[in-house]
């Protein structure tokens, strides 16, 4: 196989894992996609340096980790859970009570049969697309593999409190988006 063909099979096999790693390292889906893309391009360009006795996965992850380090070298590392209070300030007042405009409203017809409705699925998809990359990634890790919270914390190297705080933010934003664009349209 020529290098084009080999890299193509790698793209098919290893993109999921690399993208997951990139998303947990940077907090932006677009940047994570770029990093994965650059990883494969770098792998293609230095293909002759790849030793077939080592695993492509290890090699690709090493390239990606270098890309991630480069990315942070120019930027100060952002914490996976930022401490900004403006996010919560949108939903809650200074005493931590729901702001009047943000009080959860009644959702009629909130039932799992909505998943058969392609319009609802589109809305959900769009709302998830609006979440910061690492928030959505935590949702994915949790819900695709139905994995245990503790395991995910280990993988992402975050504390349990970081994990449920991320979930808290993601859920608040997701429920607001669905309320605006679906339940209270």
């Amino acid at each position: 196989m020529d290098s084009h063909a080999v890299i193509k099979t790698w793209v098919v096999s290893y993109t999921d894992g690399l993208y997951l790693r990139a998303c947990t390292a940077v907090s932006d889906k677009a940047i994570a996609e770029d990093l994965v893309q650059e990883t494969f391009i770098a792998a293609f360009q230095s293909f002759d340096k790849f030793r077939s006795e080592s695993s492509p996965q290890t090699w690709l992850f090493a390239i990606l980790n270098n890309k991630i380090n480069d990315h942070y070298r120019s930027k100060q590392k952002a914490s996976i859970v930022s401490k900004d209070t403006t996010f919560f300030g949108y939903f809650f007042d200074e005493h931590g009570h729901w702001r009047e405009s943000e009080c959860p409203k009644e959702w009629s017809d909130a039932d799992l049969h909505l998943l058969d409705n392609s319009e609802f699925k589109n809305t959900l998809q769009k709302c998830r697309g609006n979440l910061p990359g690492h928030w959505d990634m935590v949702l994915q890790l949790k819900y695709i593999d139905q994995r245990d919270g503790k395991e995910i914390c280990q993988d992402l190297n975050i504390s349990p409190s970081n994990f449920w705080q991320l979930m808290h933010r993601a859920k608040l934003q997701l429920r607001k988006c669905l309320e605006l664009h679906w339940f209270n349209k």
């Binding site: 919560f88 994990f163 449920w164 705080q165 979930m167 808290h168």
Partner: peptide, 15 residues
């Protein structure tokens, strides 16, 4: 507070 209560609701589901 409601902010803390909603956080506990999430914590409860996972831990």
């Amino acid at each position: 507070s409601c902010q803390k209560a909603t956080e506990l609701i999430e914590k409860e589901q996972y831990f």
